[in-house]
Design a binder for these strands. Sequence first.
DNA 1: TAGATTGTTAATCGATTAACAATC
DNA 2: TAGATTGTTAATCGATTAACAATC
Lengths: 214, 214
Amino acid sequence: MEQREISQAVIGRLPRYYRYLGELMESGVERISSNDLSKKMKVTASQIRQDLNNFGGFGQQGYGYNVKYLYAEIGKILGLDIAHNMIIIGCGNLGQALANYAAFENRGFILKGLFDIKPELSGKLVRGVEVRMMDELKEYVQTHDIEIAALTIPKSEAIKVADMLVANGVKAIWNFAHTDLNLPEDVIVENVHLSESLMKLSYNVSRYRDEHVK
Amino acid sequence: MEQREISQAVIGRLPRYYRYLGELMESGVERISSNDLSKKMKVTASQIRQDLNNFGGFGQQGYGYNVKYLYAEIGKILGLDIAHNMIIIGCGNLGQALANYAAFENRGFILKGLFDIKPELSGKLVRGVEVRMMDELKEYVQTHDIEIAALTIPKSEAIKVADMLVANGVKAIWNFAHTDLNLPEDVIVENVHLSESLMKLSYNVSRYRDEHVK
DNA sequence: TAGATTGTTAATCGATTAACAATC
DNA sequence: TAGATTGTTAATCGATTAACAATC
């Protein structure tokens, strides 16, 4: 549409704004200026205003932003006001950790199914959802309008499972496997590469250590 | 030192280079040009060369890069060749998932301790490491030369635990709690905010859905 | 009305890409 | 030597910050 493309740098900051606004709301704060928020969040006020104005004018000159309103609006921008059917593939510790993440339902993510290969997990309930076996996955996805699949399985499995999911209608993959997925352009992939995160940390402590030894 | 500051954008790409080079090594590839690597990784050859040349010249004109050598060098840059003592605070599913991540030891991260508040977990072994109670944490950190602490505990606890850890010598926090930690400048914090990751995904699927409905 | 603070344009800064001379 | 490909400088692009007129 007319809406120009918004950079992923901006999108990446929205959840953090959302979190801070949620906390302000809980503390009963009614309004906040970009300047006050910038101090709390350690970003520039300019950036906050620029980011928000990608989506519309949510503030008022001389007043600032209404916390409750802005929180709700950012929620809408992020799509948290609509239901997203989700499944988790892989019920190891990581898969179960995601399943147990309570805030999911509040934010429109509806856990519809859990899948694993291990027969001993079959029928087990995690957060009220029964674990199914992988051979049921294809048919399940075809018939249950699943939008998002979280992949918490080894990389050796991840690529072919992702291909199958996408071929059967899944629109987005939350990928925890240590590999890249080469999927069609219109499929959304959000990678969480924990090992890469730890290596970044490792780089930074190691550099720091170097500097202080010398 | 003389070394100018390297941007976090560059650091953030190193682990991915490392991963691809590791895979090439496993497939027995001996050398690769920035151009061939760029095609595999879907980045520009220019970026690869620029990134690497922040740290030195690892290639050879007319030849390219020796895979094994470059892999090792990036490993050193990332600090994967030195031991990092690590503990995990919080032995829920997420903490246990991290503990079980096998590649840790290969890459210099040595899991020294696991901590939780739940008495029923006391003494439990996870990957051969015994779960200790939180009241032992402070003394343990003081006496075991712990460099990195992974925080997989609720945000209500995370802030004060992080402060305590840092006050007792921990240099880096791998933070999985849904909050920012305001720690001294010289402490390295690497955040993994899963809920924010999922919201980014949510934004992208929602936008896509919009575009295709209209 | 005066003061505050937004929305938005312009200036700056940094990161990415392109180009090419150096050299294996 | 000729061809290939790096290392590095220069050009471009995009993102961040600063500034300020508009307006509540």
